[in-house]
């Protein structure tokens, strides 16, 4: 009786608990911003969803393979079809200017730092 009502009352936290693959990432920072690379093999541009909510970055994608009809799996190291990874962004990053590029299953995200957070050279005057 009770479990019937479960799907309709599924909340955000339930969604987060769904079993997903965690794509490996590289994150590097330079003076102008952060670059993130994520491995998402099998995810097409249409199936990739990157979004920023408040200061949280969500990377989600659905894996789609060309599987011939009637194929039975003999061995699977990738046993799920959804990728998900979540990061918390820091305040000095400019979430409105995130750019994303997907190439051969690798996502490259560039998150620039907000203008006021960019390093400035301060001239030291000799008095």
């Amino acid at each position: 009786m009770n479990d019937k009502t479960l799907p309709s009352t599924a909340t955000k936290s339930d969604e987060a608990r769904e079993a997903t693959l965690m794509p490996p990432v590289d994150v590097v920072e330079d003076s102008a911003g952060i670059t993130l690379y994520a491995d998402l093999p099998g995810v097409s541009r249409e199936a990739l969803h990157v979004r920023v909510e408040d200061d949280t970055l969500f990377i989600e994608g659905d894996l789609a393979l060309k599987i011939p009809e009637g194929m039975e799996s003999n061995h699977a190291e990738v046993g799920l079809s959804r990728y998900r990874r979540v990061f918390t962004l820091s305040k000095e990053l400019d979430a409105d200017k995130v750019s994303a590029e997907l190439k051969q299953g690798v996502l490259k995200l560039r998150i620039p730092k907000a203008e006021h957070a960019q390093p400035k050279r301060i001239q030291v005057s000799v008095g």
Binding site: L40, L65, N74, H75, A76, E77, V78, V106
Partner: peptide, 27 residues
Amino acid sequence: LGNGSFPALNVGGTPSSVEIYAFAPGI
């Protein structure tokens, strides 16, 4: 067992073929 190796492999078969998928992004 091949767990944790790169690239990850899935292997499947149909009555007429054998299908291998290697998850090797960015190559």
